[in-house]
Design a protein around this nucleic acid. Structure first.
Length: 295
DNA sequence: ACACTGCCCTGCGAGC
DNA sequence: TGCTCGCAGGGCAGTG
């Protein structure tokens, strides 16, 4: 499931190969209309004979910057793969679209579940693209204070908000669970109930799990590969996501639980992430037991 | 504006 | 062995 770290690794792996390349033509594979958000002729017209001047990322979306000022947006959804091949190599199953480039290269998009999207942002449309997305997790202007202020206005479960791309961009199910676990925050806590201290901890944990995942070239549960076809290494370091309910917490040994929040499977440790925040008083009350009293 | 539901799509693994 | 079924989930449209 490509989230911010995986998209960043794809970006990093492809950028040196794509920068300066000229797009010769667009080739449609299977079900192109399922993944391409504009008519193919419009896409072809906008990209053919254009040069790729850069590759950037916004949230989970990869942006091919063209010399016309237009952007080709690539969202990998659940199972999208953007890889380089040579023209003439056999197409894999579930190949949907290719950009044939100069210098004997072809940028290919395949997506088993077709949840991904390829779009076009014309010059002048950047602002409306940008308006749909919340801040980048690493943006310096995203301080604990501003984050706390925005959380305070919302009543949804904190995890549901972390998954909302218009609230903060780039977080998906894996890193939401990992960050909440590290911060010791119950995923179902109403967002507005987080203290400034907890918000500070959550933001720090988010940045930690994302930075570590990027350094390990992403998390490959099943399908994820970078732009050169290589899997990531971060899956071996996940602390809570993907663990079976009933198995022991790697930190405290308590029984891991699984619930549903915002239609997403949510794995957490009821002891490390208590429903009510741990206070000095409740800590001494329940020390050494699995007491679940509220206080 | 916000909260929430259903839907899209395929592969995989459990169960019979 | 071979079948069915439930599940995985990001984002968007639709509803209240």
């Amino acid at each position: 499931m490509p989230e911010l770290p995986e998209v960043e690794v794809v970006r990093h792996s492809l950028e040196p190969k794509l920068r300066g390349s000229r797009i010769l033509r667009v080739v449609a594979g299977a079900h192109p209309a399922d993944v391409v958000q504009v008519p193919l002729q419009d896409l072809a017209h906008a990209v053919e004979r254009r040069r790729i001047v850069g590759l950037s990322r916004r949230g989970k979306t990869l942006l091919l910057e063209l010399d016309s000022g237009a952007l080709v947006t690539v969202h990998l959804g659940m199972t999208g793969e953007l890889t380089l091949a040579k023209p003439g190599e056999p197409y894999p199953r579930h190949h949907h679209l290719s950009l044939v480039l100069d210098q004997g290269r072809e940028l290919r998009y395949r997506d088993v579940r077709r949840f991904g999207r390829i779009g076009l942002v014309r010059p002048g449309e950047r602002e409306q693209f940008e308006r749909r997305l919340g801040p980048e997790p690493f943006a310096p202007e995203l301080t604990p204070e501003t984050f706390h202020r925005r959380l305070h206005q919302r009543r949804r479960a904190i995890k549901a908000l972390l998954l909302e791309q218009s609230f903060i961009a780039g977080i998906g199910n894996i890193y939401a669970d990992e960050a909440l676990f590290r911060a010791g925050i119950y995923p179902g806590r109403p967002a507005g109930s987080l203290s400034l201290k907890e918000t500070n901890q959550l933001l720090a944990s988010l940045r930690e799990v994302l930075a570590e995942a990027i350094a390990r070239r992403g998390t490959t549960i099943r399908d994820y590969r970078d732009g050169l076809g290589r899997p990531g290494e971060n899956q071996a370091f996940l602390r809570i996501y993907g663990r079976a309910p009933g198995s022991p917490c790697p930190l405290c040994g308590s029984t891991i639980q699984r619930i549903t929040i915002a239609q997403r499977g949510t794995t957490f440790c009821p002891r490390c992430q208590p429903v009510a925040p741990i206070t000095a008083a409740s800590r001494s009350e329940t020390a050494g037991s699995s007491g679940s009293r509220t206080g």
